[in-house]
Amino acid sequence: MDNSKKTILSARGIGKTVKSGSSDLVILREIDLSVTAGDAVAVVGASGSGKSTLLAILAGLDTPSIGSVEVDGADLFGLDEDQRAELRGKSVGFVFQSFQLLPSLSALENVMLPLELAGRADAEAMSREILARVGLGERLSHYPKHLSGGEQQRVALARAFSVRPKLLFADEPTGSLDAAAGSGVIDLIFELNRSYGTTLVMVTHDENLAQRCGRIVRLVAGQIAGK
């Protein structure tokens, strides 16, 4: 994996405003952010500070009112919706607070999903391997409803890392877990991150977790307060 110190994520002048009744509500303003490949960045802030909105914009899930984002050299909002989806499929992984596993699919099938969408013929073998790596090699055929929260998040991690993403966005990955399970998941995230050389952008409330990242971006009322 290429760990050269090039900028893999760059945001310039990001602003997000939504209509709220007759007035405008500013969620983000003048966000400039640059992330180097291989870095681990924590985005912290109080509830309503715009963390998740910023994450969604950086990942191309949402569009900013103003500003631009470059991911791996591609102008994210110069692309159309489908091109952004293809870019995400190739370069981006996600871990969500609510896991977002498909309930109708087994653990193995959930991990296989992004690989199948990418047209990988070895989707099953790769999925088995990475599930074994996160400690769920014996629970391949289990459905999400039969897994604990920590196990579900491990499946989600396996799914996120299965496509070997250059950039991993994690939205409160321990937000739905107890302390013990959360700690295990965090250890796993950093271990996989190091192993695959992935760049990590993580939104969290947890200051201790943020401290484990190399860099902390603090959002206050939609603006970066400290870097």
Binding site: R88, Q100, L102, L113, P114, L117
Partner: peptide, 16 residues
């Protein structure tokens, strides 16, 4: 709905 949103995240285009 949720599954489709997840698939969109992981690279599924609308046509796909």
């Amino acid at each position: 709905l949720d599954g489709c949103a997840v698939m969109r995240c992981f690279g599924a285009t609308q046509n796909r």
